[in-house]
């Protein structure tokens, strides 16, 4: 059995290796229930989401509101930095403010998109959520960031691609509402990683060849044996640590992980489309936000992409948009097609 490691956040050690032997019937019921609930949500979406504040919203400028949960789990918490206010001196607050702003600028300057809903929606972020909290998430109307336990993880605002990843979940939710399970869920996660890493590259003015293509590198403490939480260039190689285990991401369809864990492997199989984007981007000299990002963005917004689309459906859309944007025999179209073939999504 694995060693016991006590951490401030109370992580359970890997002491039991046997997985839950849940029956298919239970899984089917779960999936059906999720679909029904998601359908209900999809119809109701936006009903409780924060709306554009006409008195303060200006297209092309973010409307950020950073709150502190003060180590509780009540959202959004106390407002600690409103749009235009000076730095607070609290690193988590100021990082959330800066990276949400960088993400807004990316979407506005690259795609002409005005915030999450393309209608100037306020960017609401909460930091200091819970105590020693090792996570960041999108709850359907705002972004939430934990401080990390300090043992394995640092604060989750430290990495711009993580902040941008969470904001992008809001974009995906508004544009296509990909079901958060199985291949559609893995595609959802991949798109959040793709646009997350694009924000980082755009902000740093990095070429695809110079970029590290890592997700969450700044989150890991020195005690973790690993470089990041995910590697888009080489899925499955981000970490190999006695406590965290080994990065389970595949980079090719032959290694696709069929699992009930992680909502059907949404953070696992996302490695496959992640690598496809990386391969397409590095095959071209132009910055990724100019070459393949517009292709991925157009595919994500294409009406032909359904809430339950799989990798192959998305790949076909990216190839079609690459041809439309750059020409039938263009280098860009070939790079996109080749990338999906190399990861085994297209044969």
């Amino acid at each position: 059995m694995g060693r016991t490691v006590a951490t401030p956040c109370g992580f359970m050690p890997p002491h039991v290796l046997e997985r839950v032997a849940a029956q298919g019937s239970v899984r089917l019921r779960r999936c059906a229930q999720q679909t029904l609930e998601a359908d209900h949500w999809f119809r109701q979406r936006g009903a409780s989401a924060p709306q554009r504040d006409a008195a303060r919203a200006v297209a092309g400028r973010p409307d950020r509101r950073i709150h502190s949960a003060e180590n509780e789990q009540t959202l959004p918490g106390r407002l600690v930095r409103d749009e235009g206010q000076p730095a607070s001196g609290d690193p988590a607050v100021d990082e959330a403010y800066e990276w949400l702003g960088a993400t807004y600028r990316f979407y506005w300057e690259v795609f002409g998109r005005d915030s999450i809903d393309a209608k100037g929606m306020p960017l609401i972020g909460t930091v200091h959520y819970a105590r020693d909290y090792d996570n960041a998430f999108w709850n359907g109307s705002q972004m939430v960031f934990g401080d990390g336990d300090g043992d394995l993880f640092r604060r989750f605002t430290a990495a711009p691609e993580v902040v941008a990843h969470e904001l992008t979940h809001g974009v995906i939710e508004r544009d296509v509402g990909l079901v958060y399970a199985d291949q559609a869920g893995a595609l959802n996660e991949s798109l959040a990683d793709v646009f997350g890493v694009l924000v980082k590259q755009y902000h740093a003015d990095e070429s695809p060849q110079a970029a590290d293509w890592l997700i969450g590198a700044a989150l890991l403490t020195d005690r973790v044996q690993g470089r990041a939480l995910r590697s888009m260039a080489a899925p499955g190689t981000a970490y190999d640590d006695p406590v965290l285990g080994r990065d389970p991401q595949p980079g090719h369809m032959r290694d696709f992980v069929d699992t009930q864990a992680d909502n059907g492997g949404v953070h696992i199989n996302s490695g496959i489309p992640n690598r496809a984007f990386y391969l397409a981007a590095v095959a071209l000299e132009a910055p990724a936000w100019e070459s393949v990002a517009p292709v991925w963005y157009a595919a994500m917004r294409d009406d032909a992409l359904s809430r339950e689309s799989d990798f192959a459906a998305f790949a076909a859309l990216t190839v079609a948009h690459a041809r439309r944007q750059h020409g039938e025999g263009s280098r860009e179209a070939r790079a996109v097609d080749d990338a999906w073939r190399e990861v085994g999504v297209v044969s």
């Binding site: 359970m12 890997p14 039991v16 090792d134 998430f137 990843h165 939480l229 965290l244 864990a261």
Partner: peptide, 20 residues
């Protein structure tokens, strides 16, 4: 009875094993 904590920003196999 198996109790597992699921979800989060990343799937970390070492922390995903259920308590049984």
């Amino acid at each position: 009875l198996a109790i597992s904590r699921e979800g989060g920003f990343a799937y970390l196999p070492g922390l995903a094993a259920p308590r049984e």
